[in-house]
Amino acid sequence: MVVSDLLTPKTDRRAGPVVLVEATWRARRDEHVRRMRRWTEPHLRRRADGQKHPVLDFLFTYYSHRPARLERWHPGPGVVLAGESAREYLGWSGYREVAAGVELDPDAFTPNRRRTAEFVLALLTATAARPPRLGCFGLHEWAMVYRSSQEEVRHAGWPLRLGSSGTDRVVESLPIRCSHFDAFRFFTPPARPRNTLQPTRQDQLRLEQPGCLHANMDLYKWAYKLDPFVPSELVADCFELAVGVRELDMRASPYDLTALGYSPVRIETVEGRAEYARQQADFAERAAPLRARLVEVCRALLAYAR
């Protein structure tokens, strides 16, 4: 059996769990830790030194999954970890001991977790059913600083490429088409009426669409919200997608981040907008199978823990 066969929980509990021998699950666990420490260790060093990073901090501050939790490997439901060292998982919430080893406890899939899985399933299914819309050009970041003083700018330590007045002119010259509430809610008050939509939290299922950078970053959020019931390989895949999306998000922003090695996507130009749309389409394509995997995980969880 290959690793990919184990990434979706089994919906038929009568078939019995998959039992992983200790060498197999420890190798998967170690690979996951190595993979995530590429991101967690630099973040922890920056935090210890009091250094802020306008691009990567977002993945650990806006998203609330702590680095230690991101590094922790979980197999997902329907999998038993064999061997004496598997008993260390009994010190973590959500596991139980069985004859063959240690597994996730279906009773730990509480009513609150069930409601979360039901919401995530509904949201991601609705999102996947829509065509991607690629005409926003990342203007949400510009709308977050529109007509702001330097003290009000979120990343005040970094200059605006076009200055305040140039930034405002870009916002005033292009239509803003943001459909994502968790981006729109950070718009400055003067920018909000300029958006073609006025999304609310209640509109989320109706408006979310697969071309949206923030909707694709949020796949990481929906994966870790169901921790430890989502296989960690899928959480890691969603996290790494979020890293790439966040980089495009900030490269297309009004900030000058060249000192950090981020070349700008100049969406104030025709060529820059075309480049943004191409990369946005690429991320939509990359996000689609992850969204589909999360949909299947949610369906399987709802059946597994009935």
Rank of each mutant, 00 (worst) to 15 (best):
S4W: 06
D5N: 09
D12A: 12
R13W: 15
G16H: 11
V18S: 12
L20M: 13
W25S: 06
R26L: 15
R26D: 10
A27Y: 01
R34Q: 11
T40V: 06
E41R: 11
P42N: 04
R45M: 13
A48Y: 05
A48D: 14
H53M: 13
S64A: 10
S64P: 04
S64R: 10
L70H: 04
E71F: 13
E71C: 12
W73E: 11
W73D: 12
H74E: 15
P77A: 15
G78K: 09
G78C: 14
V79K: 10
E84M: 11
E84Q: 12
A86D: 04
Y89Q: 08
Y89V: 02
G94H: 10
Y95M: 10
E97G: 03
L104N: 12
D105L: 15
A108G: 11
A108L: 14
F109E: 04
P111F: 02
R114C: 07
R115G: 05
V120L: 13
A122I: 07
L123R: 04
L123Y: 09
L124Q: 01
T125W: 01
A126F: 04
T127Y: 00
R130V: 07
W142V: 01
A143D: 06
V145F: 08
Y146E: 09
Q150K: 06
Q150W: 09
G157R: 06
W158P: 11
G163H: 00
D168N: 07
V171R: 00
V171N: 00
E172K: 00
S173W: 02
C178N: 04
C178M: 06
S179T: 06
H180I: 04
H180E: 15
F181Q: 03
F187M: 09
A191R: 02
N195T: 06
T200V: 02
Q202V: 01
Q204L: 12
L207H: 03
E208Q: 10
P210K: 02
L213M: 13
H214F: 14
N216V: 09
D218I: 05
D218L: 08
K221P: 08
W222D: 11
A223F: 10
K225S: 15
L226P: 15
L226D: 14
P228M: 15
P231R: 03
A236T: 10
A236G: 12
C238Q: 02
L241D: 11
G244C: 12
G244L: 14
R246H: 10
R246E: 15
E247D: 13
L248E: 04
L248R: 01
M250A: 05
M250C: 08
S253R: 00
P254A: 00
Y255S: 00
Y255D: 02
L257V: 01
L260V: 02
P264V: 01
T269A: 00
V270H: 03
E271R: 03
G272V: 01
Y276D: 09
R278W: 15
F283W: 11
A284I: 03
A284P: 05
A284L: 06
E285Q: 10
A288H: 10
L290H: 07
L294V: 07
L294H: 02
V295T: 07
R299I: 15
L301Y: 09
Y304W: 15
A305Y: 07
